[in-house]
């Protein structure tokens, strides 16, 4: 059942993005930025956590989960540290994704040559 939910949720997020891309003059960069801010906003009152319970990894694959993980890490560490925790815990949960993207793209750009 969770497979169907993850298919539906991830598909619908992509569908909304495609509709925005086709019907406005926004570029893909604008759309990913909008979705990150949207993911942040949805986690202000823990709505996104409920979506993850329902859709499983289907809610973790879209870029909205990047915004959700940013604010989630900040809020978790602000329980102990207060306002300083917002800054120190910001990258706690997203660090693996960002580090992977930086390391892999650096190493691969040494190995491969750009294809035109």
């Amino acid at each position: 059942m969770i497979y169907l939910n993850s298919f539906l949720f991830c598909g619908i997020v992509c569908l909304i993005g495609q509709l925005i891309l086709d019907n406005t003059k926004l570029t893909p960069g604008h759309i990913t930025t909008i979705f990150v801010v949207l993911g942040c906003f949805l986690d202000v009152f823990n709505i996104y956590d409920k979506i993850i319970l329902w859709a499983g990894a289907g809610a973790c694959v879209p870029i909205t989960s990047f915004g959700h993980l940013l604010i989630h890490g900040a809020m978790v560490s602000s329980v102990d540290l207060g306002y300083m925790g917002l800054m120190s815990g910001m990258f706690n949960l997203t660090a693996s994704g960002i580090t992977a993207a930086i390391v892999f793209s650096f190493i691969f750009s040494l190995i491969f040559k750009p294809k035109d």
Binding site: S6, C10, C14, Q18, V61
Partner: peptide, 20 residues
């Protein structure tokens, strides 16, 4: 375009759930 995005995006979510 919307249908293709829905199906491919859905399969990405499916793949994510499967890998997890």
């Amino acid at each position: 375009n919307a249908l293709i995005a829905f199906i491919i995006g859905g399969f990405m979510g499916l793949l994510g759930q499967f890998l997890t």
